[in-house]
Amino acid sequence: MYGVVNRWDAWWRRMLTLVIFAALVSPLVRNEDGLPLSTYPMYSGTRSNMSSFVTASGVDVAGDRTTLSALTISESRDRLIAQSFLNDAVRRGDAAAICIDIASRVERSLVAVEIATERHDTVARLRGEPSLRDREVHARCEVSS
């Protein structure tokens, strides 16, 4: 199929294909998620209908809680980034610091911001049933007027 000139060309392409294929599947062997080589673990784990979420809520004068947007929470419209911003801060013990940070961005009609971990029955929530099972507040800070 290949002439004498192209034989070397074909061989290095075969070898390089093997190397690329080995690199692509190597994260499975190493069981390690990276970039650009990955095991693509998103949504792979078993998940219960009970899940905990770190939340940032605004509290108004009447004491009612409202949700805050991803942009207000993390200055990014990406909800995944907003969620990891909250998760990482609570994991590091920085809930109080990000509470003040977020409070500087909320509407002035709110009086406080709360960073909390809420446990929800997520399937019940989609079926229109009450879902909140547990709530632990990590930090509460006032909104400066």
């Binding site: 499975l28 095991t39 693509y40 673990p41 949504y43 792979s44 784990g45 078993t46 998940r47 219960s48 209908n49 899940s51 979420f53 939340t55 949700t67 805050l68 947007s69 991803a70 929470i73 909800r79 907003a82 969620q83 809420e118 929800h120 997520t122 399937v123 929530r125 989609l126 879902s131």
Partner: peptide, 30 residues
């Protein structure tokens, strides 16, 4: 990776429903 992490439990659909519930709830809370 799905089979390795969750085994055949992933196939019965419960995990998928819980993932959908999780995603929707997370959006609700944001």
């Amino acid at each position: 990776t799905k089979l390795r992490v969750s085994g055949w439990a992933w196939v019965d659909g419960t995990t998928l429903v819980n993932h959908i519930g999780y995603s929707a709830t997370r959006l609700d809370l944001l």
